[in-house]
Design a binder for these strands. Structure first.
Length: 462
DNA sequence: TGAAATGTTGGGGCG
DNA sequence: ACGCCCCAACATTTC
C-alpha cells in the first residue's frame, strides 16, 4: 500500500544541509513532497523585490537540482499561501506540513490561521534562537542589544549542525509551475550583469563563500570597516535565503579563528538575531517607528532628492559610490549602508521608510526584520538605536574609512583622477570635476536642519 | 557603529 | 626673567 505523504514547505531556508524541517519531514517515515510557494498576493505581504527575484530564481533552480540528485524534486506554486497550501494538501493527500518558523508578521498571521485546520510543524531553520527563547530576567523581550547578546552567548552553543541527507523519500510529485513561467529574471533590460558577476546563489555557492571568508575571520574586526577591501563575509544574501544556516556559519567561524575577529563577527550574526527578536515582538517594525514620538517627525517630501539618492547622483562621493554599488550588484558594504542611510534620513530629511523600500527592492540580502530594524536604528526611532543627533558627516566618514578613495573610485568613475586629498569633498577643489554633480545639499546646512527637526519632536514629548 | 562647539592645558614666540 | 598671547593638542560638552 502507498503511504500518505507529508509536505516539506521551503520558505527562506533553501538548503538541504542543517535543515531541521527537512529532517523532521524525513523522520515521519513518509514520502516527502518539497514545495516552494511564491506569494505576491497576500495583503500586507512583503513580496521579494526585484533583486531578490533574480536571486530566488537561481536559488530555486539550485535547490531543485540538489533535490533531484537525491531522488526528489521541487514543486513550484504561485499564489496566496492561505489558498495554495490547502490546495496542495488536497491534491496530494498529504497528512501534514513541515516548515521553517516564519517570523514575518504577515506570514505568521496566515500560518496561525491555517494551523487551525492543517497540522503545520515548524522548526527553527533560519535563526540560532527562537524569538521567544531569549528573555530578560523579568521575562520580557530585550530592547537593548548588549544584554540580548550576552543572554545569547550565555546559552549552550547554538544547535549542532546536521549534514544533508543522502536521499529523500521519493513521492509522486504533483504538477509544478516552471521557473521560466514565473519570469523572475529581468529581461528588458537585463540589469543583472553586476549581480551575476558578484554572487553565486545556491547552497553550493553559500558554502564556497563561507570557505573563502574563513581565513579572514581573525582580522574581521579591523578589516570589516574598510569598504575598499574584502573584509566582510558577504554571506548576507545566502543567510537571507537560508542557503546556509546561521549555526553552520557560527560553528565554522569558531573553528577558523578565535579572539576579537571571531567575537565581532559573531556579534553581527547576533544583530541579525536581535532584529528577528524585535520584529517578532513588535510586528509593526517595518512600518511604524518603535518610539512613538517619531510618528510626528517632520519629514520632507522631495522626489528629486530621493531619486538622486537612489541613483547615486547626490554629489557626495561615498554616498554615490554606495548607492551605485547597490544598484549594480544588489549588495552594499555595511559601513556604507550606515553612511547612505544617515544621509537620506538626516541630510535629506526623507522618511526612513522610503530608504527601507528602496533597499528592499534592490538588495539581494533584504530580510524584513534586519532591513526594518536597521533603518529604525539609523533613524533613532528603533530599539537601542543610534541617537538621532549622531549625524554622520559623509565626507569625514570617507576620509576615515576610505582614505585613498579606493572604494569611491571603484564605483564613481567621474572621480577616477581626483587626488586622495579631495576625493571625499571634490566641491572644495578650485576646479571641481564638471561631469560630477555638485552636492544636492550643503552638509553643514543639512546637519543643522536635521537637528532643528529633531527639536520639534523632542519638545512635544517634554 | 559621531561631529561640532566649547573648554583646558601647556609649549613656545616675543616684547 | 616674566607676562602675554597664540594655538595645537587634547578633553568635555552638546546636539
Amino acid at each position: 500500500m502507498t503511504q500518505k505523504p507529508v509536505l516539506l514547505w521551503f520558505r527562506r531556508d533553501l538548503r538541504l544541509a542543517d535543515q531541521p524541517a527537512l529532517d523532521a519531514a524525513i523522520a515521519t517515515g513518509r514520502p516527502v513532497i518539497p514545495v516552494y510557494i511564491l506569494d505576491e498576493l497576500t495583503p500586507g505581504a512583503w513580496a521579494p523585490g526585484g533583486a531578490q527575484r533574480w536571486w530566488l530564481h537561481h536559488s530555486l533552480a539550485s535547490l531543485d537540482a540538489d533535490l533531484r540528485a537525491r531522488g526528489s524534486g521541487l514543486v513550484l506554486r504561485r499564489g496566496p499561501i492561505a489558498t495554495e497550501l490547502p490546495r496542495l494538501m488536497a491534491e496530494t493527500g498529504a497528512v501534514e506540513i513541515h516548515a521553517g518558523l516564519a517570523i514575518e508578521p504577515w506570514a505568521r498571521r496566515v500560518i496561525d490561521g491555517l494551523a487551525r485546520q492543517i497540522p503545520i510543524r515548524s522548526q527553527m531553520t533560519s535563526l540560532l534562537f527562537h524569538p521567544e527563547e531569549i528573555r530578560t530576567g523579568g521575562g520580557t523581550p530585550y530592547g537593548v542589544f548588549t544584554p540580548f547578546s550576552r543572554a545569547c552567548l550565555a546559552r549552550t552553543t547554538p544547535r549542532t549542525t546536521l549534514p544533508a541527507p543522502d536521499t529523500i523519500p521519493p513521492a509522486t510529485l504533483p504538477r509544478s509551475d516552471t521557473l521560466a513561467e514565473w519570469a523572475l529574471l529581468p529581461t528588458a533590460p537585463d540589469w543583472a550583469a553586476g549581480l551575476r558577476k558578484t554572487h553565486t546563489p545556491g547552497e553550493a555557492g553559500a558554502r564556497a563563500r563561507l570557505n573563502a571568508f574563513l581565513p579572514h575571520v581573525a582580522a574581521y574586526h579591523e578589516a570589516r570597516d574598510i569598504p575598499g577591501t574584502a573584509g566582510t563575509s558577504m554571506l548576507s544574501p545566502h543567510l537571507a535565503h537560508g542557503e546556509i544556516s546561521p549555526a553552520a556559519v557560527w560553528e565554522a567561524a569558531g573553528r577558523a579563528a578565535a579572539g576579537c575577529g571571531l567575537e565581532v563577527f559573531r556579534a553581527e550574526l547576533l544583530w541579525r538575531e536581535f532584529s528577528a527578536h524585535l520584529l517578532w515582538h513588535a510586528p509593526g517594525l517595518p512600518e511604524t517607528p518603535l518610539k512613538p514620538a517619531y510618528a510626528a517627525f517632520p519629514w520632507r517630501k522631495d522626489d528629486r532628492a530621493l531619486k538622486a539618492w537612489q541613483r547615486g547622483r547626490t554629489g557626495i562621493p561615498i554616498v554615490d559610490a554606495g548607492m551605485r554599488q547597490l544598484y549594480a550588484t544588489g549588495w552594499m558594504h555595511n559601513r556604507v549602508r550606515m553612511i547612505t542611510a544617515s544621509f537620506l534620513i538626516k541630510h535629506l530629511l526623507l522618511p526612513w521608510q522610503s530608504g527601507e523600500a528602496w533597499f528592499w527592492d534592490t538588495l539581494v540580502d533584504a530580510e524584513l526584520a534586519a532591513n526594518a530594524a536597521s533603518w529604525q536604528w539609523v533613524a533613532g526611532s528603533g530599539a537601542d538605536a543610534a541617537p538621532f543627533f549622531r549625524v554622520f558627516n559623509p565626507s569625514l566618514q570617507g576620509q576615515k574609512f576610505d582614505p585613498d578613495g579606493t572604494y569611491v573610485k571603484a564605483w564613481v568613475p567621474e572621480l577616477i583622477n581626483i587626488p586622495a586629498k579631495h576625493i571625499h569633498a571634490p566641491w572644495e577643489m578650485p576646479y571641481p570635476p564638471r561631469n560630477y554633480p555638485a552636492p544636492i545639499v550643503d552638509l553643514a546646512f543639512g546637519r543643522k536642519r536635521a537637528l532643528d527637526a529633531l527639536q520639534t519632536i523632542t519638545k512635544s514629548v517634554a
